[in-house]
Amino acid sequence: MNSHIILRVVGKFLIPLIIIFGLYVHFHGDFGPGGGFQAGVIVAAGVILYALLFGLKACKQAVPPSWIRIGMTVGVLFYVGTGLVTWMLGGKFLDFDVLHPATDHPLGQHIGIIFVELGVLFTVATVMVAIFYAFGSRQPQIMDDEKDF
């Protein structure tokens, strides 16, 4: 563990930055390259980095698997919820124009995209972490099996 000390310190600095960068990528996605997918992966990368540095157990304490599940759901809900809202406002599914009454500027599109992408962010981030957890948790079992063979 001690040999990781530098990594951990650097990591402690970097992880918040990574997450903030992820959020930047997300919110910038409205105007330039970026968006929920990329952001989600970046955020997940931060979490994974934490796990790599401090161990899976610590990571699971920081980001419990139950959050992961909920995060996935919430992501989808954000996405679909936006659609539902457009429905409720009398438009078609994901018809963002109805989100804002402005007709000369597609403000509604911006709002809609942000929320939809937020959902994507949640989902992608949590799914990536989930995959990582899934594989990461397996390791001991495989080791056991290895001895048998």
């Binding site: 438009g91 078609k92 599914f93 994901l94 018809d95 963002f96 124009d97």
Partner: peptide
Amino acid sequence: VLSYALGG
């Protein structure tokens, strides 16, 4: 035919 334009 039913046609539904997604997102308008």
